[in-house]
Design a protein around this nucleic acid. Sequence first.
DNA 1: ACGATTTGACCATT
DNA 2: AATGGTCAAATCGT
Length: 370
Amino acid sequence: MENMGDWEKMTLLNELKQGRELTKQLQHQLHSAVSLLSSSSSSSHDQTQEMLIHRIMASYDKALSMLNVEPQAGGCPRRASESPPSLGGSPMSGGDSDRDLNDGSTPRKRKVMQQWKKRVRVAPGTGLEGPLDDGFSWRKYGQKDILGAKYPRGYYRCTHRNVQGCLATKQVQRSDDDPTIFEVTYRGRHTCNQHPAAVISPSLPPENQTDFNASVNATPLQSVQSQHQQNQTGPQDIAFDFREGLAIATQNLDSNNGNHNPSSSMFIFPSTPENIFGVMNSNSNFSSNPDFLSVSTSGTDCFSVPPARLDSFQAGPSFGAPESELAMIVSAVASGNNPQANARSDSDLPLHGMEFANENIAFDSTEFFP
DNA sequence: ACGATTTGACCATT
DNA sequence: AATGGTCAAATCGT
């Protein structure tokens, strides 16, 4: 456990929480099923089920407490506004903006900058090695070989750091396993006056994206651009990812049993025939490249949409559901003149951590991730 | 000339 | 001491 990376720890944590939450759901299902039946005395079979559930819950609680997490009923140990856990490396060391945080007189805890990650897949053969355009302009200020990593890590800061004092930074690390994937860690908020393309940008933490209900008519997917092109980028990328540390969505995640049932989802949101609403957990990521928009959970691609199928795409902070249970809601608006987008019904989707409330539109990840 | 990138050195943290 | 993050001089590209 000690030699676990923070990223792995977070993933393990999320899995455990998810398991616990799903067990709770199962418990509720069983309860409601029992109460629907005649209220004659519960059978020993019911009691056995109840005991098993309690033991499963106890196991999850024990595992969570071993990870120093208070297992709690709500399922969300932290509110979103609280500082995220330290992930992916030690907290900022030596940053010029951080150096002055402690005058040495009082040993106070270094301020932990908000950070969140995304995984970006770059289409192989594009010849583009750099990170995706995310609508902001970045200046590279360092590169470092990281122990155990095949590829060096690039360090970027906002171009407008000096002029406008914007402290946003990002790190780009090419994946060892899949060189077409870049893991991008964003830190700090943009305080500069840059106008990233769409409302949604991976370098904006979700709470900045409050205009969730407004329609976004941006081109959903844009080409990967070089650093130079980024500087004059217009409305471009709608890639998006979720802040660390949010709670786990608790919808039905088991997509491998072929029993995917939209109606069993815990959260159903109002949707129009033109809209798709998805619910994702805190490990979900959006990424895009010229060929598709993809949504993944825990690093596993689970959902992708060819750009031709969508007119716009947006995501924002959760609403209409307890924050403790929902991380994010995703909405995509399908084109009215795009028959493909409305052609299929929602069933047996290979989705992990994502649920559509709209049954008119479905996307099959296997089409794009064979 | 100017801005961006590269890269070795330095510093903080563990 | 090892490692990760940043600085800043040198270099590159336009």
